[in-house]
Design a protein around this nucleic acid. Structure first.
Length: 645
RNA sequence: GCCGGUGUAGCUCAGCUGGUAGAGCAGCUGAUUUGUAAUCAGCAGGUCGCGGGUUCGAAUCCCCUCGCCGGCUCCA
């Protein structure tokens, strides 16, 4: 007999060779129907895999992350089978599951495949699913595997197999389709009840832009039709939160083809919101000991030769600006750090001056690839809430922790809860692409991780994601469509102090080199506002929103009293709009609702004769009448609630 | 930058296989004076993204180019 250990720690005995599906049946009929795949000793296996030794076993269903992965991965096989049936010459490469579905990268050769072709593939997939063909995993020798794909003239699979070890290679059959695959499938295709192919896209073989571009088909599948409907509904809802749509509807920003792509134009309301955010950050930074500075939008070529950016990015940047006379060359500034280094150098520094924290809302320009531009999240001209902290090596960790506090304060004030912290370290192998000493890197990487840990941040570590000059800690937040964006960033830099020969006099009266920390809690105002907009679906917090109150007279007869209300509110520094048109109240309310105005004051006969306002609050509806002072107090109280929660 | 899609009035969109453009909303004018998500009527508004070609004739077909959208690659 063998011992099987379950996730709850319980252990049961079974005959050697028993399969997970038999164990599931043994536990309950319901479970046996629901279970999709098994995790045996922490590895995904088919339910038909015999277990011969003492093992741990987790029976995974649709409710488990890995259960979904197996389901979607298996769906990718069905996608391939459908494509093979319709396009016999298509060559298959890889087809994994992803966070929300699956894809398959396919070389269609000369045939063009477009989104118009998706429905017929989708239908074929459903046909194949209905056949309930079992997924059969079996071992194959490297020679036979290579032979199989060489006959099919599939250089991609051949390349994959060549990198595998003989003895570890498995194929998986379902219906008439065979694929190289390491396993972890659902029992048969019949489990897939609903399929939606979402889009086609180009993707480079092995993610390298020098390689051939393949056609990637994205899809998602479900064990129940209703779940697909729900998912599609959710996607529609998410689109309504898109900051590009809301930005236009709420009059926050615009783009102009004439001005140029990736160059946002801030409209009055957007500017209002943006300036308020700036003020918020400026105040927080003042308390945290930052000093505000201002630097020009351009800098001489020499500045960037010193910083090293000229060599590394010169060719891929906006091209230099030449003056009419002499050989003067300037560049649009792609970052603020070199300027700040020169501010550091403007006077001699003592160890007593450190840390020196220089902050600037610095507008920078970067030549981003055209295909990368995306609303406000990826633009060519943007403003960072930048600051550089120059400190002694022994202050790095403490400064780092203070910045984490600041970022968390910002996130809390704006009700961001779903963020992750990503620690980006060097690539474990290719060390030559990083500058700076091994010792400094090790020290910095360690300090970042310690600081994050002590602050209790939920972190993920990514190797190879560090900047070339130092490791970093990024705060990642998702947009409406679940795409992940980097917002706040904290980066250690041992490079620029070296290149700019920054120094301070220590207590030993010797010259020492400071460490530089780059940090931007918002990241950029553009991206931050984009993600914030999607996060709150345009319902900005009361303290931040451009228009806090709309005053809506029921008829023009009450415009005079309404004007008094408006004056009172403006005097109380409450941002107020006044709709004095001769429209019906229903229409005025509707339009204010669509503008997501937090408060509306409805003014009619009763209000004007009794010096009252009738209050309609966002999300609550009519909350009754009150005097002006009481209303002002209500607004103040709501603002406080946001910060105290 | 690459693959695919797309581009008609300020906005959202219609316009079949080629016969020189239409709706709703917004705007303007007038009427209406209204009680918690759209009052009515009239008017005005477009070199159909730009440039070229095919054709007797192009929003529609072809080529080029620009913007936008979905991915890929990139992101100091």
């Amino acid at each position: 007999m063998i011992n099987i250990t379950f996730p709850d720690g319980s252990v049961r005995e079974f005959e050697p060779g028993i399969t997970p599906i038999e164990i599931a049946k043994n536990i309950s009929h319901g479970l046996a129907k629901k279970v999709l795949v098994a995790e045996i000793n922490n590895e995904l296996h088919e339910l038909s895999t015999p277990i011969t030794t003492n093992s741990s076993l987790k029976l995974l269903t649709w409710d488990d992350k890995n259960g979904k992965s197996a389901f979607w991965h298996s769906s990718a096989h069905i996608l391939a089978e459908a494509v093979q049936a319709l396009y016999p010459n298509a060559k298959f490469t890889i087809g994994p599951s992803v966070e929300n579905g699956f894809y398959y990268d396919i070389d269609f050769g000369e045939t063009s495949f477009t989104s118009d072709d998706l429905p017929k593939v989708e239908n074929k997939m459903l046909d194949l699913a209905k056949q309930s063909n079992p997924f059969k995993l079996y071992a194959i020798s490297k020679a036979d595997a290579l032979d199989y794909y060489k006959k099919k003239d599939n250089q991609y699979k051949v390349e994959l197999i060549e990198n595998l070890t003989d003895g570890d290679i498995t194929f998986c059959d379902q219906g008439s389709f065979t694929d190289l695959c390491r396993g972890g499938h659902i029992p048969d295709t019949g489990y897939v009840k609903a399929v939606k192919l979402l889009n086609v896209a180009g993707a480079y073989w092995r993610g390298d832009e020098k390689n051939k571009q393949l056609t990637r088909i994205y899809g998602v599948s479900f064990p129940k039709k209703e779940e697909l409907d729900q998912y599609l509904f959710m996607l529609e809802e998410a689109k309504k939160r898109d900051h590009r749509k809301l930005g236009q509807e709420l009059g926050l920003f615009a783009f102009s083809q004439k001005v140029g792509k990736g160059l946002p134009l801030w409209l009055p309301k957007g500017t209002d919101l943006r300036e308020r955010l700036e003020r918020f950050m400026r105040d927080a930074q003042k308390k945290a000991g930052y000093l505000q500075v201002v630097t020009p939008h351009i800098g001489s070529k020499q500045l960037y030769i010193t910083s090293g950016h000229w060599d590394k990015y010169g060719k891929d940047s906006f091209q230099p600006i030449h003056t009419p006379e002499e050989d003067e060359i300037f560049m649009l500034k792609p970052m603020n750090c070199p300027h700040h280094c020169e501010i550091y150098k403007a006077e001699p520094r003592s160890y007593k001056d450190l840390p020196l924290r220089l902050a600037e809302f610095g507008t920078v320009y970067r030549y981003e690839q055209s295909g990368e531009l995306h609303g406000l999240t990826r633009v060519r001209g943007f403003t960072q809430d930048d600051a550089h902290i120059f400190c002694r090596p022994d202050q790095v960790k403490e400064e780092f922790m203070k910045v984490i506090d600041l970022v968390l304060y910002v996130f809390k004030s704006l009700n961001f809860e779903n963020f992750t912290a990503q620690v980006s370290l060097r690539d474990k192998v290719n060390r030559e692409k990083y500058i700076g000493s091994e010792e400094n890197w090790d020290k910095a990487e360690q300090q970042i991780q310690e600081a994050a840990k002590e602050k209790g941040l939920p972190t993920i570590i990514e190797y190879g994601e560090a900047a070339f000059y130092g490791p970093k800690l990024d705060f990642m937040v998702r947009d409406a469509l679940n795409r992940s964006w980097q917002l706040g960033t904290i980066q250690v830099d041992y490079n620029l102090p070296e290149r700019f020969e920054l120094e301070y006099t220590g207590s030993d009266n010797q010259k020492h080199r400071p460490v530089m920390i780059h940090r931007a809690p918002f990241g950029s105002l553009e991206r931050f506002i984009a993600v914030l907009t999607e996060h709150c679906a345009g319902d900005f917090p009361l303290w931040l929103t451009p228009t806090q109150v709309a005053v809506l007279p029921i008829s023009e007869k009450f415009n005079d009293y309404s004007q008094k209300v408006v004056d009172f509110l403006k005097n109380a520094e409450i941002r107020t709009s006044f709709d004095e048109r001769a429209e019906k109240i229903g229409k005025k309310i509707r339009e204010s609702e669509m503008q997501k105005t937090p408060f509306m004051l409805i003014i009619g006969e009763k209000e004007s004769s009794e010096n009252l306002v009738s209050v309609r609050e966002r999300g609550k509806g009519d909350v009754g009448t009150m005097g002006l002072e009481d209303f002002k107090n209500l607004v103040d109280q709501r603002i406080k609630e946001n910060f105290n929660q």
